[in-house]
Design a protein around this nucleic acid. Structure first.
Lengths: 208, 208
DNA sequence: TACCGTATTGATCAAGTGATCAACAAGTGG
DNA sequence: CCACTTGTTGATCACTTGATCAATACGGTA
């Protein structure tokens, strides 16, 4: 179970080791939050001496920022892939909402929330958070435009609407960090709010 | 400027001292965030020895939870007072939205965001956050019901709608923590989303 | 096989955390 | 005016954090 006291040291490629450390950081972030991504915690999880982490990483703040960025961009790719299977613009957004609000993502939600908190003070993190938010917004804006071009959504400022979609999603998820119960009928109401934003009937979001 | 080395010690009522320490904690939370509410930071701000803070407080976690709760319930009282001057149900919610989203409250927004993050792991904090969220939700739900009773809003689940209003507000504010610019036309779009939720025209929220 | 560049170790430092407690003194009651 | 209760101090403990660096030893190379 536990490794023997005399841990035989293994030499690896700097790139490979860097990847391992990044993976350890991501794992800790998901399981215990960004504030648990500590030099020693990462070292321990990677089965490596504390000094090695410091050796490869350019300060813990950078490692945390990277862990956040990697996790969040992976989430975006995942959702984008899910959507791509659907054709109707409204239904695509419906699927997106259902996926992001199904309550099975408190781990990455915690990462988002903590990143906002950190970003309010640490500019390095803030820049990264801003970049990832921009990516999300771009994807959402593209979806909104798709609907507008197809004549399904009311024509308007797709960029601004995308920001609002993101805010609604993030707000609901942030709440769920502390209060899993409470929000009755999440699905239906989100659809109503978003439908109002897009100028469609809520039914359209449910996939016709 | 700085107090002389020999700080003459002053005796105060336990209640008064407790109040001072709580005030110091609130001040630090607003200016530097909840994670800066440290035993020594509070002591220093209150002009008191570190030991005294430990003496009066039942663990730092409790002090932080109280600071959060006090700040946030004061905010609620403030907003409630502001609203009470308006009569039209839709306009009341309009004022509420404008007030909470005018971008001048990043300090307390940071407190909220950090509280969610802390609450995800510390149950003491989570309970307090839940309680404060409940208070906010109650106030919002009362406003929604007021509109429904007056025949201004579409009849529906006032509780659920209130939760969503809160989520929209919190989501937008959380974003503004890291990205003050970017969100163009916040006002108008919030009104559209909320109008969709309430079943009124956006114009009604603007006060007729 | 012996060498040697370098990946890796782990002890160590300085700073900061919450918490404890014996000693001190302010100010009230006798 | 002197006691004595009790609010207050500040040194101290045990622990965690990020970071540094001399010493170690792995593993490809000659």
């Amino acid at each position: 179970m536990s490794e023997t006291s005399t841990a035989r040291r293994v030499r690896k490629t700097p790139d490979q080791r860097r990847a391992e450390l990044a993976a350890a950081a991501r794992g800790i972030a998901l399981e215990q939050g960004l504030d648990a991504v500590t030099l020693r915690a990462v070292a321990s999880r990677a089965g490596v001496a504390p000094g090695l982490v410091a050796h490869y990483v350019d300060g813990m703040e950078a490692l945390v920022a990277d862990a956040f960025g990697d996790l969040v961009s992976a989430e975006l790719a995942e959702v984008a892939a899910l959507i791509s299977a659907v054709d109707d613009p409204a239904a695509r957004i419906g699927v997106l909402l259902e996926t992001l609000l199904d309550g099975s993502r408190t781990d990455i939600t915690l990462v988002w929330v903590q990143a906002w908190g950190l970003g309010a003070r640490a500019e390095t993190v803030a820049a990264r958070v801003r970049a990832e938010m921009d990516d999300w917004q771009r994807v959402l804006a593209a979806e909104v435009e798709r609907g507008m071009d197809a004549g399904v959504f009311a024509v308007g400022d797709a960029d601004a609407i995308a920001w609002h979609l993101l805010a609604i999603i993030d707000g609901l998820n942030a709440h769920s960090l502390v209060r899993w119960d409470g929000q009755p009928d999440r699905r239906g109401l989100v659809q109503r709010a978003v439908a109002g934003l897009l100028g469609v009937t809520p039914e359209r979001l449910r996939g016709r």
